[in-house]
Structure formats: structure tokens, C-alpha cells
Nucleic acid binder design. Structure first.
Lengths: 201, 201
DNA sequence: CGCGACGTTGATTTGCCTCAACGATTGTGG
DNA sequence: CCACAATCGTTGAGGCAAATCAACGTCGCG
């Protein structure tokens, strides 16, 4: 399996950046040189518990997840990342400390990855990226805060509703077991929730 | 009531920045010119639901909280901010959109505040602050992610333990009602948890 | 074909909430 | 400075949301 349309992969990333702040040709060239495309098969690991997270990943095609396995062996999904999203364990990445998290693919996926040293070089040679990543992280922070608020203040039913309306594409694309784990409930209970819904409407 | 040691207030902020990246005198001067000290009495509002969040706040002395009031009138605390912490509704602040959140003080407090336009000027005249705030937000993001993980994967008892070990100073400083609201449980249940603990030890 | 992942349903249990009542403390206006 | 209200922490009884455990049918895939 080849990585089809490699150049257009990078184009996707470039327009992602440009939607925030314009880039000149030199800056675009550095991006092309710094990010490397990679193909991952379904269920493949990008990061395993105990390892140091060595890259930031920008998803071009497919879908990944990041999760923690608790003491009882249960999976708790922190984040999904489909097309045009970022995924990484920032804590482990910057501190170069072992991660408690796992990242793997839910589908065959194409990502653009950048290593820590390449990112630092990118910051040095094009300081504009401090600003770009500041804005990106700020946006992620706001979304995460919204999710936390939901989690501590709403019932499972409301949270599922919010998920469906916020990620309509993911709702049908992902198995319910995965969505249940993201919502912090059991698959059985999610099944009952969906059952209630259809009866209502 | 005067704001004692005003200069040392700004010193606290400057050393907060310098602990991340060194600043030259010109940059320090801009900080001093951009941030303004303010005193808030206990229970005073800094942001009310429906208003646009106009400032970032750095806490010099005292303690604030940010929370949402749900449909039933219940309070859900997203964040405490004591000395050396930041607090603001970033979403409302950047988008200039009405906030769903409230910020107020739990004690008489001194903060250094910066307005949106002053912050934009700060970024323009000293681009280094893109980097500084990128790092600050990244750190906040990592903490928030940890808290979310806790919330979806642990029992109330574990979350309380984590709170006590992460914020030992706040544990005795704040009323249990506030901590309960932060943990997403009722004050009655927190009381029972503490009761269990003391019996165990 | 056979196995594993998935979704569903039922019976039971449990973690946490609700409502209510009670002392102790704080603070505040007269 | 006292009186009274408000806030706080605690405890008890009962209820509900969601978990647990178990069984079963379906589908996709090696």
C-alpha cells in the first residue's frame, strides 16, 4: 500500500497553518522539510505506555486515539484524532519523560510527523511558529475545558448528545465501544441510551 | 485597603516569566506598562455569565475560582487560581464572545491584569511572548488533560486523594463545599469520604 | 469454517445524590 | 457588643444513575 498523493498531504498541513497565519515560500519549504509522511495500519501503535513520545502527529487520513489503561485494565480514551487534527502526548513530548498513555490507530491512517529536534529547529528558523502553535494549543485548551465542564456537570445522556452534535462524522464512523470509552461509560449503558433516544424520536 | 508592595507584585510576575525565558530590560518595561494591579474583595466578580472576558489575570495574592452554573442552578468549578497562577476564560477572551462562565474571588485578592489590546501590543512589540504564552498554555493543557483523565477513570475517593496530594495548600485553605464542587461531587458525599479516610489511617 | 469484536438485553449491585435535620462557626447590622 | 442570619460541616434514610456480570445473536475476517 502506497501513500497516495503525498504532496497533497503536505498541502493539507500547509493550508491548516495558513488558515491561521500566512506563510511565505521559505516558511512553507521548512514545513515540507520538517514533517514526514507515514502510513500506519489499523491497530498499529504510535506510542506505548512507558515510552517517551517522540513526535507530534498531524492526521491526513484515517483516525487515531490516545488512551490510558487503568489499574483494572480498562481503557479510557482521552482523544480521537481524524483528518486535520493533531495528536500527541505533549507532557511526555516536551519533558522527554515516559508516557502513561498509548496512541494507536482505529483505521489505516496517513500522518505527518515531526520530531522534537525538528520542531525546535522549526521554531528557531521560523519563530512565527511559536505564534501558530500558541493559537493551536489555545484552541485545544478551550475545547478540552468545555469537555471537562460537560463531564463534571452533565448526565451520560447529555454528553452523548453533545458528542453526536459536535462530531457527527465520528458518530457513525467509530464502533460504539470506542465512543463509550471516550464518554466514560460502559458500552452496555451506551446501548441503552441509544435505545431510549430512538424511542423518543 | 491599599495594595501593599505594588512593585514586588510585578516582580512576582516578572520572575514567573523569567523562570521560562530570560527577558531584557526593555521587555520587562513593557510588562510593567501592560499589566495593572487590582484589588478585589472577597466574593467580588471579575467576570459574570453573559459578559465578554476582557482580561487575563495573574494572581499575586489571594484565591479566585472560575465556574459554570448549570440549568438546575448548581455550581461547577473548573479552576482555582491562587498565588502565581493565571485565570481567564480564554475562549471568550479571544473570540470576544459572551462567556458561560463566572470568575470571582474566594478571598481578598491582588491580581495583575492585562487587556486584550494590551496583550496584542505586547505580542507585537515583544514577539518573545508568543513563545512564553505558548509554553504556559501547553503546561495548562497537560494539567487539564490529567484532570480529565482522573475524572473519567477514577472514583470520587481517588480524585479527592489526587487533589489533596496535588494542591496540599488549597486543601486546608478552601471550604469543603468549594472542593466538592471542583471534584464534581456533593459536599455531603465529600464529608463521608473524609470520614472514611480518617478511619482508615 | 471458526474465532473474535461488536451490539443488545436482563438481573442485580453500588456509588453517589437528594432531602432533611442538627450543631458549630462566622460575620454583620442594629 | 450582642443577636441573628448565613455558611459550613456532619449524619441519617431513601432513591436513582450507571456499573457489573452474564448470556446471546450477528457480523467480518483470517
Amino acid at each position: 500500500m502506497k501513500i497516495e498523493g503525498l504532496e497533497s498531504s503536505v498541502d493539507l498541513l500547509l493550508s491548516h497553518f495558513v488558515s491561521l497565519i500566512s506563510l511565505d515560500q521559505a516558511e512553507k519549504d521548512i514545513v515540507v522539510a520538517s514533517f514526514h509522511p507515514r502510513l500506519f495500519r489499523k491497530k498499529q501503535y504510535l506510542l506505548q505506555e512507558g515510552d517517551i513520545c517522540t513526535h507530534l502527529y498531524f492526521v491526513v487520513r484515517g483516525c487515531l486515539r490516545m488512551y490510558k489503561i487503568d489499574d483494572k485494565g480498562l481503557v479510557h480514551i482521552l482523544q480521537f484524532a481524524a483528518e486535520n487534527s493533531w495528536i500527541s502526548d505533549l507532557g511526555s513530548f516536551y519533558a522527554e519523560s515516559p508516557s502513561e498513555l498509548t496512541i494507536d490507530t482505529l483505521e489505516d491512517s496517513v500522518v505527518l510527523q515531526i520530531s522534537r529536534t525538528d520542531l525546535i529547529n522549526l521554531y528557531t528558523s521560523a519563530p512565527k511558529f511559536h505564534r501558530i502553535f500558541r493559537v493551536l494549543v489555545e484552541n485545544s485548551f478551550v475545547s478540552l475545558q468545555k469537555r471537562l465542564l460537560q463531564t463534571i456537570s452533565s448526565t451520560a445522556e447529555d454528553r452523548y448528545q453533545y458528542f453526536v452534535s459536535t462530531y457527527p462524522n465520528l458518530t457513525n464512523r467509530l464502533p460504539q465501544t470506542q465512543i463509550a470509552s471516550y464518554l466514560g461509560i460502559t458500552p452496555e449503558f451506551l446501548s441503552r441510551l441509544r435505545n431510549r433516544q430512538t424511542k423518543k424520536s
